[in-house]
């Protein structure tokens, strides 16, 4: 059967077929290489590279994100500290202001009080001295009126005595 198929009677082996197939196969290989093999393999290689790169860059961005998170945490802690220091500063300042204001007010009140006391004393002194003067004038007026009316020896004498007495008292005091 093999002889029937491969060896055509009278003309020998169909070598032409073998040659035809070999050449066609080589041409087909070349065409496939040109059309599909090279571009597809290149694409597959590119994809493999891209996936590897993506994995690398994902790792990179993950570490970056972790770094950023740490930085933010630190900044947050710092701002906490800063805020608390600001608050405590403000508190201290407020305390200081309060005490100084209180002290000022106290001293002001003290001054005002002492001034008022001084003024009152002055007023009192002035009023007293005025009253004394008035009393003296009045008594002199009264005295002159009495003297003009009746001045006898006894009375004169008594007057002089009292005057002298008054002088002495005046000197004593």
């Amino acid at each position: 059967m093999l002889a029937h198929l491969t060896i055509v009677p009278g003309v020998g082996l169909a070598l032409g077929d073998m040659l035809f197939y070999a050449i066609c196969f080589i041409i087909l290989m070349w065409l496939i290489k040109l059309v599909a093999w090279k571009p597809v393999n290149k694409m597959m290689q590119d994809r493999a590279d891209k996936i590897a790169n993506d994995i690398d860059s994902a790792e990179q961005s993950r570490t970056d994100a972790a770094k950023l998170a740490a930085q933010r945490q630190e900044a947050l802690a710092n701002s906490h500290k800063e805020a608390s220091s600001i608050v405590s500063d403000a508190k201290q300042q407020g305390q200081q202001t309060r005490t100084s204001l209180l002290a000022d007010a106290q001293s002001d009140v003290q001054t005002l009080k002492s001034n008022a006391q001084k003024d009152i004393e002055q007023e009192r002194q002035d009023a007293l001295s005025n009253a004394k003067n008035d009393v003296a004038d009045l008594s002199i007026e009264i005295a002159s009126k009495i003297i003009h009316k009746e001045l006898n020896a006894n009375d004169q004498k008594a007057l002089i005595d009292s005057y002298i007495e008054g002088l002495g008292k005046h000197n004593e005091s």
Partner: peptide, 23 residues
């Protein structure tokens, strides 16, 4: 060279089908 028309035609068809498929 002796060629077998059957094989040549069938082979060409197969080669063309493979190429068109891949293309």
């Amino acid at each position: 060279l002796t060629f077998n028309a059957d094989n040549v035609i069938s082979g060409l068809i197969a080669f063309i089908i493979v190429f068109l498929l891949v293309f």
